[in-house]
């Protein structure tokens, strides 16, 4: 770890000004990912701007602004801890998928530390990314991708590139992708709103960039629009260990059926599949208006996965995410959430 200057931010605008003006500065939130990276040498900032005490720690039921789609919803401050967000009564009843995803992630201790904004900004757990003695384009652009032809169990099956084949590790992000959340971002030029699907990006030829945010832009809140589907939503995380393990694959889904049992509204997002939470729009389209039978869900997933590229180590993800999606949609039809 380099020697560090440390500043505790008094307000969000000041924090943004400090970091955006210094390419070697980083925001410090809950620290669960950044402090790890400092020790591993993965991140080598010279300046830390501590935003963890900024008063962005409220969960409020609000009328959302027009550029977040309007209507009733929830505004979650970026510093709300993962444990508090998962336990919030409004989230548990109106967006159960968000609670479920948070509770499936990390451990009780880490959920007390990790913040909403930080969870979204966490970086991949690819073993090569975390090991500075190996080549990794995300950590060191142009050095190569060790994961191609190497340890593949957690690698992406959709949207990868020749430069990077890793996945995004967050559970929360998968849930937020499924409920059409909006991310409120403060930059040097003021505030903007980013639809959740546009926050994270595919690796392409710039895998060092996880998100579409510019250096120094700070997530201050996440807005969740209310919907009938969001209130009937859940999350399944398939993993080796029963707890405290990253996903092999995960499925966040929200479902609303009409009186005839046909799909009136469905949102499906996948984790462990791609460099970003993968919103399965093709599968959703295939299911709208139809009865979500096992066969139909499998066919919809097959459409979504048509471009999947796998290796021996991660080929299982294609049948696994399909089966997990079948399972989740069946559970939601049975009223479980």
């Amino acid at each position: 770890m380099r020697e560090l200057d440390y500043h505790r931010a008094d307000d969000a605008a000041g924090a943004v000004a400090l970091v955006s003006g210094d390419p070697e500065a980083s925001f410090l939130g809950g620290g669960t990912n950044l402090v790890d990276h400092l020790k591993l040498g993965v991140a080598r900032p010279r300046v830390l701007v501590d935003i963890s005490r900024l008063p962005l720690d409220q969960v409020e039921e609000v009328e959302l602004p027009g550029d977040s789609g309007g209507g009733p919803g929830l505004r979650v401050g970026a510093n709300v801890r993962n444990s508090d967000l998962a336990a919030h009564p409004a989230v548990r009843s109106g967006w159960p998928v968000v609670s479920r995803a948070l509770l499936a992630g990390a451990s009780g201790q880490l959920r007390h530390q990790a913040t909403t904004g930080g969870n979204l900004m966490q970086r991949t757990r690819c073993v090569y990314f975390q090991d500075v003695t190996t080549a990794c384009n995300k950590r060191e652009p142009g050095s190569g991708c060790s994961a191609i032809g190497g340890y593949a169990r957690y690698n992406a099956v959709l949207g990868a590139s020749e430069h990077c084949v890793t996945v995004h590790p967050s559970d929360l992000a998968v849930a937020l992708a499924a409920v059409d959340a909006v991310v409120v971002v403060l930059g040097p030029d003021g505030e903007r709103r980013v639809p959740f699907e546009e926050l994270h990006r595919l690796p392409g030829d710039a895998p060092e960039r996880d998100t579409t945010l510019a250096h120094g832009e700070l997530i201050t809140a996440v807005e969740l629009p209310a919907s009938a589907a969001a209130a009937t939503s859940t999350y399944h995380k398939a993993r080796d260990r029963a707890s405290y393990a990253f996903a092999l694959v995960s499925v966040a889904a929200a479902l609303e059926l009409d009186e005839a049992g046909r799909v009136a509204d469905v949102r499906i997002a996948w984790g462990g599949i791609a460099h970003k939470p993968w919103r399965a729009r093709v599968a959703e389209q295939a299911l709208l208006g139809a009865e979500p039978t096992e066969e139909r869900v499998a066919a919809a997933c097959a459409d979504e996965l048509a471009d999947a590229r796998t290796s021996e180590g991660n080929a299982f993800k294609v049948p696994m995410v399909t089966a997990a999606t079948q399972h989740v949609l069946q559970s939601l039809q049975g009223g479980r959430r």
């Binding site: 440390y6 620290g31 402090v35 020790k39 501590d50 990390a106 201790q109």
Partner: peptide
């Protein structure tokens, strides 16, 4: 583990359980 993956460093910080390995003291 010094890496947030084992829980051995858990303390109660301001009343809540918390890892100390992924926390900079200055913060």
């Amino acid at each position: 583990c010094d890496h947030g993956q084992c829980g051995s460093c858990t303390v109660l910080l301001d009343g809540r359980r918390h890892l100390t390995c992924l926390a900079l003291a200055v913060a």
